[in-house]
Amino acid sequence: MAVHPAPITFDDPHGGHGHGDGAGHPPHLKHYFVSSEQQFDASKLGMWLFLVTEILLFGGMFVAYGIYRSMYPELFTEASTQLDTVMGAVNTAVLLLSSLTVAWSIRAIQLGNKKLCFWLLVATVALAGMFMVVKYFEYTHKFDLGIFPGEEMVYAEGTTFTLPGLGEENFGPAVDEHAAEGDDHHYVPGDHGLTNQRAGLFFSIYYMMTGIHGLHVLIGMIAIGILAVKTWRGKYSAEWYTPIENVGLYWHVVDVIWIFLFPLMYLI
């Protein structure tokens, strides 16, 4: 804002507290920035760099996935059948929809429509909650079947193990003990039909990736919830909505990671 006609002076007698020419600076402008534009650009670049770290954080696990898939292709095709494709697809649609609502809420606040922005943010939190609920049912179903990561994985009685890390303790209870109960919703640990001894490895990767992704969804829910409250209180306007834009970017990356997780885990 300090661009004067010649001669060029960048005279700022108030040090950090004022901004010279008295054009009036908005309250959100931090004193160490020259203009809102600079502040907006800076925080957005900062957010993008943070997203880069997020991608590489997940990237480590994607690399582990890729390496083990190239080592044991049959394990991945076999184990992925244990995952519920319909639930995964529903969750994908839910996350995509929440991405849309976030993008739309930014448009709303840009146009100054705070009410619409608020409701769209609320919808996003609700959709994220729905995602987590579906995830909860998926997880508990797997736990019922004795599908745990790594050495905790439970197999049906009689499976032969050649890997030294697996042994007697990995056998589930005998199937017929529970068959008599006639309870439709009761699953027997180990009764998942998987015989591949490395299934634990697949589900380690599955639980790590979806677990950390779920953690990100939770963090996103909290962040978007805070944004919604602040929007309701009128903190944001068409003049200043940087936090919404940045949290939106974060939320889209959570979505993008799921876009890759879904086919890799559930489909192929």
């Binding site: 050495e151 890997l163 890390g165 490895l201």
Partner: peptide
Amino acid sequence: VGIGIFDPALG
């Protein structure tokens, strides 16, 4: 929890 990603005993 012994996820086994770096453990040859689990593959």
